[in-house]
Each structure stands twice: as structure tokens, then as C-alpha cells.
């Protein structure tokens, strides 16, 4: 099973890195994102980028932007390019196909975040020229990769779920982008309209559990959503239905 998952992931990666022509726009967006999170924002923030506890939470949603386009292609792309039925007619088990596609997307998103983190650390140190090497505190060094992994997992599971039913890659990407925007803005806007007493209670609770507690709560919630979406994807993957789609 693990071998099959890795085989599917290998193919996904090969395809992802063979992108050309119409996908050059995607490459430009990728370079732009790496530039923003690896160079521009760290330069703007200076040492704060490394030391501020709040920045750790950025890294939970950065993969959402990175993984979306790759994972939208997972099933919708195979359907659009008429390769899905041949894949389904192979000996690969359902779960290996699903998990292989998810693994490729997660590894892609998470790997890029690690590159961005390393680049941002380098940028901050070069800009600071303080003599002493600035390092992420342990909370950041553990929390950022963990949240990035869970964020990539969220994008991958949600993306595969959308892509399983979308007739085209474009439609899958649009649905996914709308979902990601809602995920980012609805909680922020929702908090604004809460009664003041609730806000005060939430503030007090946040202070009580601290940044570390908040990090674990966020990680726990993300893990729960990831697992729910994974279960939904397993339930929704039906060879017969995919063939007829």
C-alpha cells in the first residue's frame, strides 16, 4: 500500500514539475509568493519576523494558497485529459490513488513552506547584520512547520474532495479558491460582529492559555478538520461513479 501511494505521488510530482505553456502563470505566482514570504515580509518586519510569536500562525494558511492550484488538477485534470479511466483500470487500490494524490500536494505545499522559512531566516539575518545569528524560538521552529503541514493537509483533502466531482480543473480551482477565501475572511469578519462581552471572554481565554496553548488548539482543530475531510474523500471515491463522470 505504501509503495502504491508513493508511486502515485511520484507521478503527480513528475507532472507538476513538467508544467509549461499555460501553467507559466502558475509558476510566476509561486515565485511571487516565495518572494513575499521569503524576502519581502521578513525585510519589512526585521527581527520581529523571527521573534514575534504571532507570525507562527501565518504558516498555517500559506500552504492553502500554494497547494490549491496543484490539487485542483488531481482528479479533474485526469478527467479532462482522459487519463482517469486508464488509472482506474489499473491494479491500484482506491486508497492508494487518493492518498498518493494528497501526499504529492501536501509534500509540495509543505516543502515550499520550509523553503520559505529558511529563506526568510536568511533574509532577516542578512538584513539585520547584527553579528549574532538570529534563530526562530522553539515554539516557532516546531509550530510553523506543524501548522504548515496541517494547513497543507487541509488544502489537499479539501482540494481532492472538490476535484473528485469537478468537471474541469478551472471549476475545481474556482470552487477551491472561493472556499479558501471564505475560510480566511469569515472567521475574521465573524469575530467583528460578536457581542463585546463574547469578545472580552475570548480575549481573556486567549490570554489564559497563552500563545503555546493557542498553537496547540489551532493544530488540534486543523487536524480534526483534515481527518474529517479525508474520511469524506474516502467515502466519496467510487470507481464506477468516476468512470461514468
Amino acid at each position: 500500500m505504501i509503495g502504491d501511494v508513493l508511486t502515485v505521488a511520484w507521478k503527480e510530482w513528475r507532472e507538476l514539475f513538467q508544467l509549461g505553456g499555460s501553467h507559466r502563470g502558475g509558476r510566476f505566482s509561486l515565485v511571487l509568493l516565495i518572494g513575499v514570504f521569503g524576502v519581502f515580509l521578513p525585510l519589512q518586519s526585521g527581527a520581529e519576523w523571527v521573534q514575534s510569536p504571532a507570525t507562527v500562525f501565518y504558516w498555517g494558511w500559506v500552504p492553502l494558497m500554494l497547494v490549491g492550484s496543484a490539487v485542483a488538477d488531481s482528479f479533474a485534470g485526469e478527467r479532462e485529459r482522459h487519463t482517469l479511466e486508464t488509472l482506474l483500470a489499473s491494479r491500484l487500490p482506491d486508497r492508494a490513488i487518493l492518498l498518493g494524490k494528497m501526499l504529492a500536494a501536501v509534500a509540495y505545499g509543505w516543502g515550499l513552506v520550509i523553503v520559505m522559512l529558511a529563506l526568510s531566516l536568511l533574509t532577516v539575518n542578512i538584513a539585520a547584520r547584527s553579528g549574532a545569528w538570529l534563530m526562530f524560538p522553539w515554539r516557532f521552529a516546531v509550530g510553523a512547520p506543524l501548522l504548515a503541514l496541517l494547513g497543507a493537509g487541509l488544502a489537499a483533502t479539501a482540494g481532492v474532495l472538490v476535484s473528485l466531482r469537478a468537471p474541469t480543473v478551472r471549476q475545481a480551482a474556482q470552487t477551491l479558491n472561493v472556499g479558501i477565501l471564505l475560510l480566511m475572511f469569515v472567521p475574521a469578519l465573524g469575530i467583528q460582529v460578536l457581542p463585546e462581552s463574547w469578545k472580552a471572554q475570548m480575549g481573556a481565554w486567549t490570554l489564559a492559555i497563552g500563545i503555546d496553548g493557542l498553537l496547540w488548539v489551532a493544530a488540534g482543530l486543523l487536524a480534526l478538520v483534515d481527518l474529517s475531510l479525508l474520511a469524506a474523500a474516502f467515502a466519496r471515491f467510487r470507481r464506477a461513479r468516476l468512470v461514468l463522470d
Binding site: 508544467l19 509549461g20 486508464t86
Partner: peptide, 18 residues
């Protein structure tokens, strides 16, 4: 059955970028 069969279906099913 799929383990021991080969298939060339309605579409060639090749990955054209590869």
C-alpha cells in the same frame, strides 16, 4: 481482475506532459 489484465480503453490514457 485488474491486477492480471491490461487495458487500452476508449482514450489512450497517456500523460502527455510526461
Amino acid at each position: 481482475i485488474r491486477e492480471q489484465s491490461g487495458a487500452l480503453l476508449e482514450h489512450h490514457g497517456l500523460y502527455e506532459r510526461l
